[in-house]
């Protein structure tokens, strides 16, 4: 479904590759966790998947098309199919939960309607359903600054879900949350994953969470894939190799 071929990223002025020769084939229905030290290339990798980062070399192939050869308009449609959440939630400040979630629809609507914030009853209803799905119905009119970290991430999840994505990407989505909240976010992501039949790919620092929820673990070190297998095979030895 989603294939990464020979991906290389070298940042300007850097001497070492941020990613070097990464080749991965993702299947629908997989819940993939990507592990690795800070600076191992996890973020760079996941940002390449929806074209937020352009690689120096290589391709990301979604449904037989290399996303880096698409025109801007086509790339937008690819991004609609890939929901993404972030470490710092990246919500739009000063807008309400509802308004933030509604922006998840922007990729599918004419820009002029987006500009004036014109949403049909059905669209608002759908957004509300997503907000209920992440258990924030009672906060829907609150400004997002007023929410806790976990709640903010759930708003971001609802926003991404409103895109009706096939792929769900997470760039360290629980790194700034406490362990309990992080676990609940992963539970939510897992149930969404199962309900929508997604391909989910998430960067995470917490090995325990990865082993608990992932169906496949990929570990990066210095931009190279050094482990790509079932979570059970992620042994202490592999752990040492990844982190020490």
């Amino acid at each position: 479904m989603l294939q990464v071929k020979n991906l290389n990223v070298i940042y300007p002025k850097a001497t070492e590759n941020a990613l070097s020769d990464v080749n991965i084939h993702f299947q629908k229905g997989e819940f993939v966790c990507i592990l690795g030290k800070s600076g191992a290339g996890k973020s760079t990798f996941i940002r390449c998947l929806n074209g937020l980062q352009r690689p120096t070399e290589g391709s990301v192939i979604l449904n037989d098309k290399n996303i880096f050869q698409l025109k801007e308009e086509e790339l937008r449609q690819v991004r609609v199919e890939m929901g993404m959440i972030f470490q710092h939630f990246n919500l739009i400040p000063r807008l309400s939960v509802m308004q933030n979630v509604l922006t998840g629809m922007f990729g599918k609507r004419p820009p002029i309607k987006n500009l004036f914030g014109i949403f049909s009853k059905e669209e608002k209803h759908l957004a509300l359903k997503m907000i209920e799905g992440v258990d924030l119905a009672q906060h829907k009119h609150k400004r997002v600054e007023a929410l806790s970290g976990g709640q903010k991430q759930r708003v971001a999840i609802a926003r991404a879900l409103l895109q009706n994505p096939k792929v769900f990407l997470g760039d360290e989505p629980v790194a700034s949350l406490d362990p309990g909240t992080a676990n609940r976010i992963f539970q939510l992501l897992q149930s969404i994953h199962n309900d929508y039949g997604l391909l989910t790919i998430i960067n995470v620092h917490d090995v325990i969470l990865a082993k608990k929820y992932a169906t496949r673990i990929i570990a990066l070190r210095e931009g190279k894939v050094i482990f790509d297998d079932d979570p059970e095979k992620f042994t202490d030895e592999v752990y040492n190799e990844v982190y020490l």
Binding site: R76, V78, N90, T103, F106, G107, P111
Partner: peptide, 19 residues
């Protein structure tokens, strides 16, 4: 951050920037 989020929902450039 919010600009990246707006890009990743597939919004057009100007809408992403503005919002």
């Amino acid at each position: 951050g919010p600009q990246e989020a707006m890009k990743s929902v597939g919004a057009t450039r100007w809408i992403a920037v503005l919002f």
